[in-house]
Simulated scan of single mutants.
Amino acid sequence: MSGEDRIAAIQRCLDALRSQHGPTHPDVIQQQMDLAELTGQQGDFRSVADLAAAAATAWLAYRFLDALHTADPHLAATITADAAEQLDDGAISEWAWDAAVDAGYDPQKWQTGAEEGSARRSLPQLVNT
C-alpha cells in the first residue's frame, strides 16, 4: 500500500472513530497521533477544535452542577443520579434516535456506518507495519 493510500485509509478510520466515539476517546487520539507522525504534521485542527468544544462543554456542565450543589445539594444529587441512570440504561440514545427521526434523518444509516467503521478497526495495525 502506498504512503498516500495509507494516509487516506488512516484518515477514514479516524473519521469513523471520531463519529462513533467522539473526539476525546483514546482510540481517536491515538489515530490522530499516528496520522500526524506518518504525515509529519503537527496536528489536526479539527481535532483541536473538537477537543476544545468537548472541554468547554464539560467545564460548563461542571460549573452548573457545582452551582446547583451550592444552591440545593439534594436536587444536585437527584439530577446526577437520574443522569447516570439514563446513561446506563440507554435512554439518552433512544431519545437521540427518536429526535433524529423526527427531524427527518435516518439514524439507521448512521448506525450502519458506525458498525462498518467498527469492522475496519484492524486498520491501526497498518501504522505499525
Rank of each mutant, 00 (worst) to 15 (best):
65 L>E: 14
80 T>P: 00
99 A>S: 08
73 P>K: 04
61 A>Y: 02
120 R>K: 06
21 H>F: 15
90 G>R: 05
128 N>R: 15
74 H>T: 13
123 L>K: 06
10 I>C: 08
80 T>L: 05
121 R>E: 13
3 G>D: 11
122 S>T: 07
84 A>S: 13
82 D>E: 15
125 Q>N: 10
20 Q>P: 02
106 D>G: 02
65 L>H: 13
70 T>D: 09
72 D>Q: 06
85 E>Y: 08
49 A>P: 00
104 G>L: 04
116 E>S: 01
69 H>V: 02
50 D>G: 15
47 S>K: 01
72 D>G: 03
18 R>E: 01
87 L>Q: 13
13 C>N: 15
25 H>D: 12
76 A>T: 10
121 R>P: 00
42 Q>E: 15
114 A>K: 01
83 A>T: 10
82 D>W: 10
5 D>T: 07
110 W>T: 13
7 I>N: 01
44 D>I: 08
58 A>G: 03
117 G>Y: 03
5 D>E: 15
42 Q>L: 12
94 E>M: 08
118 S>W: 07
110 W>G: 09
118 S>H: 10
22 G>S: 01
129 T>F: 11
44 D>A: 06
85 E>S: 10
92 I>N: 09
1 M>Y: 02
60 L>H: 10
79 I>R: 14
74 H>Q: 09
34 D>S: 10
94 E>G: 04
72 D>L: 03
98 D>I: 09
5 D>H: 07
62 Y>T: 06
61 A>G: 15
98 D>E: 15
96 A>I: 11
101 V>M: 13
114 A>M: 01
44 D>H: 06
124 P>L: 07
71 A>F: 06
66 D>P: 02
123 L>C: 05
30 Q>C: 10
57 T>F: 09
118 S>N: 11
105 Y>C: 07
111 Q>C: 05
105 Y>G: 12
70 T>L: 11
57 T>G: 12
66 D>L: 07
49 A>Q: 05
108 Q>M: 07
21 H>E: 09
116 E>C: 02
89 D>Q: 07
22 G>M: 07
40 G>S: 06
20 Q>C: 00
21 H>D: 01
50 D>P: 00
64 F>R: 11
19 S>E: 14
110 W>M: 10
79 I>P: 04
29 I>Y: 05
22 G>D: 02
62 Y>C: 03
